[in-house]
């Protein structure tokens, strides 16, 4: 009797051990590349050429890699600022535009309403990679080629199908009675939207903003095509130029520093707002 119980307990423990052993191995596989890169980026310049074994700085903490990175393009601050401006601008503008559109689609009736909604969603079917060539020409015609504003507008457009869908759902979930009560209290139109409804759809706004921020911070191909001026480059374009090398030599330390600068904000935003991110992912998956 006792032996049977013991055997079962041992098997359960082995099972738990196996489970957590596998879990830890998986976590290491998915996280180690980040950890190694971030630690390696703080090694001395002389160490940057060597394999990261051990990955942490052995001859003292140093910012050499970041200083080297700063010598590329217009300096790493400028390019981080470019990326941040585009990402924050995209997030803000996407929130405003999709908030208005979501409200309009949810609360008003007008001709072609459903057709227009489907039109916005249907742009998901068409990959933006296939319209880059004309986009390049159209932006040039508008005087927005090689400009961070033009790039931001393109990113906002790419975010719209998902964002308008999210915001319409968010408004659909708000009971009409709240609006009617606010109307009786004298709130109208934009005032009603901003003062009464905005707090109620805030989770949706956060989700929309996270996705807009991350996607535009990380985007590569459109930025590569639409920006031609060195000083306008966003971080991914700058770091890929660093990786391409100067005079046939590649400064891997600067690449590690660049990857760190690009990844850490994403990881940080995700860990901080994970709940909202996952909500967006589920909404997208269900759709």
């Amino acid at each position: 009797m006792t032996t049977k119980k013991e055997a079962r307990a041992r098997r359960a423990m082995l099972g738990a051990g196996g489970y957590h052993g596998t879990g830890i191995l998986l976590a290491v596989f998915f996280l180690a590349p980040f950890a190694i890169t971030i630690l390696s980026s703080f090694r001395h310049g002389t160490e940057a050429r060597l394999p990261p074994i051990p990955p942490w700085p052995t001859t003292g903490f140093s910012l050499d890699a970041y200083r080297n990175l700063d010598s590329f393009g217009a300096g790493v601050w400028q390019h981080t600022l470019n990326s941040a401006a585009v990402a924050v601008g995209t997030a803000l503008l996407t929130v405003v535009v999709s908030l208005l559109a979501g409200y309009g689609f949810s609360r008003y009736r007008f001709v072609f309403k459903n057709a227009l909604f489907v039109l916005i969603i249907a742009t998901l079917m068409i990959p933006f990679q296939s319209i880059l060539t004309p986009l390049f020409i159209i932006l040039a015609k508008l005087g927005l080629n090689n400009s961070l504003i033009g790039l931001t507008l393109v990113y906002v457009t790419l975010q719209l199908p998902f964002s308008v869908f999210m915001m319409r759902n968010a408004f659909d979930a708000v009971p009409k009675e709240i609006e009617e009560a606010a109307r009786i209290d004298g709130a109208r139109d934009l005032g009603l939207l901003v003062r009464v409804l905005l707090p109620l759809v805030l989770p949706g706004i956060v989700t929309v903003a996270i996705f807009a921020f991350l996607n535009s911070w990380n985007e590569f191909l459109a930025a590569l095509v639409l920006l031609s001026d060195n000083s306008k480059f966003t971080l991914p374009i700058l770091i890929s130029a660093v990786r391409a090398g100067r005079l046939g030599a590649i400064d891997w330390g600067a690449v590690q520093a660049g990857v760190t600068v690009m990844s850490v904000p994403c990881l940080f935003v995700f860990l901080l707002l994970q709940r909202y991110y996952m909500r967006g992912l589920m909404a997208g998956a269900v759709k």
Binding site: W217, F220, P236, S240, M262, C266, V269, F270
Partner: peptide, 9 residues
């Protein structure tokens, strides 16, 4: 975690 960083990164 790797999902949230860019493909370029």
């Amino acid at each position: 975690m790797p999902v949230v960083v860019g493909l370029a990164s």
